[in-house]
């Protein structure tokens, strides 16, 4: 096993802006992180096959792709679908893992990863919010959340209200609960999100998207009350576990 590099691909370009800290989080969890510009992958015509062979993880980081115009994540989703044509479900079926954070999560939603009946829109209070919240994993399907209890992370978004198609809402919710897709919830109602959902996974549990920023809590000194426990200043933050879970999973597959 030693010497075997497990690579994580972190996308950037077109207004994404959390690529550096996301790469750092994967790095801290022992991945080899590579930040790649979307346009370079397009001009190289990176196929799903190459992608699977090279990277164990694809991460869609946070940011404001295309300035959030035409609904958040929309144009980036179109660009990935039309210019790269990656089938992410196929990618995870081959053993890959996918993470979408904030704008990356919105992009996954727009790509239809969590089904055609799921969407996301403006917070109920109608404005951007940067705040630390408690979130709790639900079910045990999501690979990324294995073994995690309640943890704290910051949210930084204006469009985090997850919506289910109103005509089939109950049916959809039952199905998603059954499949273990409703995997992460806020402890309080933050933004009017359906069932206080903070994140979703696909039915395989390998594609995970969430509005909060786990990459913003990989060191204890990022916590807004860390100075009351300075003895822990060198400790990692609670968000790191998510990336470590991915490493365990990816390493076991190698």
């Amino acid at each position: 096993m030693s010497g075997l590099k497990i690579r994580a691909l972190i996308l950037t370009g077109d207004g994404l802006n959390c690529e550096t800290e996301t790469a750092q989080a994967f790095q801290m969890a022992h991945f080899e992180s590579e930040i790649r510009h979307l346009n370079d992958l397009i001009s190289e015509k990176m196929t799903l096959n190459q992608l699977s062979l090279t990277y164990s993880v694809i991460a869609f980081p946070g940011g404001f792709s295309f300035g959030d115009e035409l609904t958040s994540g929309k144009v980036l989703a179109l660009k990935i679908q039309y210019r790269l044509g990656w089938n992410l479900t196929e990618y995870v079926a081959r053993g890959g893992l996918v993470l979408g954070i904030c704008n990356g999560f919105q992009t996954l939603i727009r790509m239809g990863i969590f089904g055609r009946e799921v969407s996301i829109t403006h917070n109920l209070r109608g404005h951007f919010i940067n705040k630390w919240v408690k979130v709790t994993p639900h079910g045990n399907k999501c690979v990324w959340l294995r073994g995690l209890g309640t943890f704290e992370v910051p949210v930084r978004h204006a469009e985090g209200r997850i919506i289910l198609g109103s005509t089939r809402r109950t049916e959809m919710l039952d199905k998603m609960n059954h499949l273990g897709m409703t995997c992460l919830k806020y402890d309080v109602d933050l933004n009017g999100s359906e069932e206080s959902l903070a994140g979703l996974s696909d039915s395989s549990g390998r594609i995970f998207g969430l509005m909060p920023h786990p990459e913003a809590f990989i060191r204890w000194t990022a916590y807004p009350d860390w100075t009351s426990q300075p003895a822990r200043a060198s400790s990692p933050g609670q968000g790191l576990a998510i990336f470590e879970n991915a490493y365990k999973e990816a390493a076991s597959a190698k």
Binding site: N17, C18, T20, E21, Q24, G62, N130, W132, K134, E152, P154, R156, H213, E215, A216, I218, T221, A222, P224, D225, T227, S228
Partner: peptide, 16 residues
């Protein structure tokens, strides 16, 4: 106030 992942002292201290 936290993007780029560098924040140590934020505009507010918060007790959660």
């Amino acid at each position: 106030h936290e993007v780029q992942g560098m924040s140590v002292i934020k505009p507010l201290h918060t007790v959660i």
